[in-house]
Design a protein around this nucleic acid. Structure first.
Length: 575
DNA sequence: GCCGTTTTCGGCCCGACTGTTTTCAGTCG
């Protein structure tokens, strides 16, 4: 069994953790972390490349040694170095590293001096006051660790972007009223439109920091103050969301926003470029010697290292800096580029609004067309349509289109892909539609090979148009089913069909890595809301955020096309 | 472990907060 990119990346990250525990050269540790991140974000599957006899692409930061280890992992799923390192510390060490205030040094101390082998043992040692006696520990750390362990199961580790929106807006309102505050902006992974965020980073400008951090820590939703200084503070809200605030003077706003937006890997690369030009870049600005030469806007920071502005969604050090230097950054898709939505439901199945209401809401959202794509009969719990009901709905849609000019409703279906790869409705019914969106809703646990074959067989169907939510994942609730996405993308390219980027904030399926993979293969993506009620068209903005992280430009998006341009694409040309 | 117009050694991004180590190590982002 070959290992795939995420497994290779996980193994490299574990090597980094274990090396850190051994106090290895920190730059060696960083090399493993960089490699893990690079492999995780790679647009092609390493194991498949090797199977085809191709070599690893040249990646900055991956030299001869790491390339060898990656290939070994890809082909054998094993790495002798990792097995060796694992014998040096108890397995719990990796778990302890994830607790706040526990870094490699303190974890090593706990394992060596107190013989800790589980989080429960650590908890007991803390309660027995055995931990505070160790060098590097104190009653303060003891208290924080106890709190971290006791609160650990509560609240999700990462928050979905839609949930965070509702928490952030009132906090920003509060901060804008702080004494002496001018600008307030959210930075961090939220600004980069990551699908989930671990915490929220906020940058504010003010001449005097202390009154602002005081104002911030007194926000009524604050459950706990983790740290509070003159220019930065960290709190945990009652919801469990951690918020970091950084206050800088106005002239440092761009530098601070850039620094706090990250990603860390992107920042390191930019600062390194600064170094090469004799500049020092920090959150206060760009400096030549002691003289500040830039810092008020982000564009100035990039200009200082001879780059155009790089959109936050691309800042992962996955090639965006090289692309910017070569003036080859994509012009990223925007919400306003979307002309329609190819996945929506109505009351005929599990939706909450009529076709008329859905169409009116879509029109109000600026769309020129939507497809009504109900579930098919196999999904009985959603009252899926059989051929007769589908035909009646098609007639209803015809009548609707006859009476409206602002929006066109396309006749579609979200047909189940059955376990053997057949579609849940007969050709005669599917052939009368404008498009066929197909999806897996059952048997998520098939083996990778079987799941892949199942979907490939469905794609061969002459009426198959779009593969909906291609991995079936529900963020934080259900893992993606095991499927060979590079093969599906290749098959979609060959067969002239499309993949969906489901914009529902619980799904965001495809991932940004697979979006980019599809783009590079020339496969168009349908950014679709999967709306079940009129308000759900607002989800499209989350899909656009994900699409931007996947480097998609308007021309890479199926529904960024006008209805006229779209129609011929929906007709499959089968050999 | 990577890298090189400073190329096979000697660097590798940079700063804030905490605790208590009154000058800095550990952790975090």
């Amino acid at each position: 069994m070959p290992a795939h990119n995420t497994e290779i990346a996980d193994a490299l990250d574990q090597v980094a953790d274990l090396l850190e525990l051994e106090r290895a050269n920190p730059f060696r540790v960083r090399a493993y972390r960089n490699a893990a991140r690079a492999i995780r974000g790679l647009g092609s599957d390493v194991a498949s490349l090797l199977l085809r006899g191709e070599d690893l692409p040249a990646i900055r930061g991956i030299g001869k040694d790491l390339a060898g280890k990656i290939k070994e992992l890809a082909s054998t799923e094993h790495l002798p170095l990792l097995d060796e390192l694992r014998t040096h510390v108890p397995p719990v060490a990796l778990e302890l590293l994830r607790l706040p205030n526990l870094g490699p040094k303190r974890v090593k101390m706990l394992c060596d001096k107190l013989d800790i082998h589980s989080v429960e043992q650590l908890h007991r040692a803390l309660l027995d006051s055995r931990v505070r006696e160790l060098p590097g520990f104190s009653t303060g750390i003891e208290k924080k660790l106890l709190q971290a362990i006791e609160e650990r199961p509560k609240g999700p580790a990462r928050f979905k972007i839609a949930a965070v929106e509702g928490l952030v807006a009132p906090l920003l309102d509060h901060l804008r009223k702080a004494p002496g505050v001018d600008k307030v902006s959210v930075a961090g992974s939220y600004r980069r439109c990551q699908e989930t965020v671990g915490d929220i980073d906020i940058v504010a400008t003010a001449e005097k920091g202390p009154p602002v951090t005081r104002w911030f820590t007194r926000y009524e939703e604050v459950a706990r103050i983790a740290a509070a200084g003159d220019t930065r503070a960290t709190v945990v809200l009652r919801s469990g969301l951690q918020v970091d605030l950084r206050i800088v003077p106005a002239k440092s706003y761009g530098a601070a926003l850039h620094y706090f937006t990250g990603s860390k890997a992107h920042n390191i690369a930019i600062r390194r470029m600064g170094q090469e030009r004799g500049l020092k870049i920090n959150e206060y600005g760009v400096f030549r010697g002691r003289r500040r030469i830039a810092g008020e806007t982000e564009a100035e920071i990039y200009r200082a290292v001879d780059l155009p502005f790089i959109p936050p969604e691309l800042r992962e050090n996955r090639g965006e800096i090289e692309a910017a230097a070569a003036d080859r950054l994509p012009k990223l898709v925007e919400l306003a580029d979307l002309r329609g939505d190819l996945h929506a439901h109505s009351t005929a199945t599990d939706g909450h609004n009529s076709i008329e209401e859905m169409a009116a809401a879509a029109s109000a959202a600026g769309l020129a067309y939507i497809a009504i794509t109900e579930h098919s009969r196999h999904l009985a719990m959603a009252h899926g349509l059989d051929p007769a009901r589908l035909r009646r709905q098609a007639a209803e849609i015809e009548r609707f289109n006859g009476g409206r000019r602002d929006i066109t409703v396309l006749r579609g279906i979200e047909v189940d892909i059955l376990e053997d790869g057949a579609l849940d409705l007969p050709d005669s019914a599917l052939g009368e539609l404008d498009l066929v969106v197909a999806a897996v809703h059952t048997r998520f646990n098939l083996s990778r090979d079987k799941q892949t074959e199942r979907i490939l067989r469905a794609m061969e169907h002459p009426h198959f148009t779009v593969l909906a939510h291609p991995t079936g994942r529900l963020i934080g609730e259900r893992e993606p089913y095991d499927v060979d996405m590079p093969r599906l993308i290749e098959a979609a390219r060959e067969r002239g069909c499309f993949l969906e980027l489901n914009a529902h904030p619980d799904r965001l399926d495809l991932s940004e890595v697979h979006c980019r993979m599809a783009k590079e293969a020339g496969v168009l993506l349908s950014i679709a809301s999967d709306a079940h009620r009129t308000g759900d068209f607002a989800y499209l903005r989350f899909g656009v955020g994900q699409a931007r992280r996947g480097w998609l430009a308007p021309q890479d998006v199926l529904n960024a096309r006008s209805l006229r341009e779209l129609r011929p694409l929906l007709r499959r040309t089968m050999a």
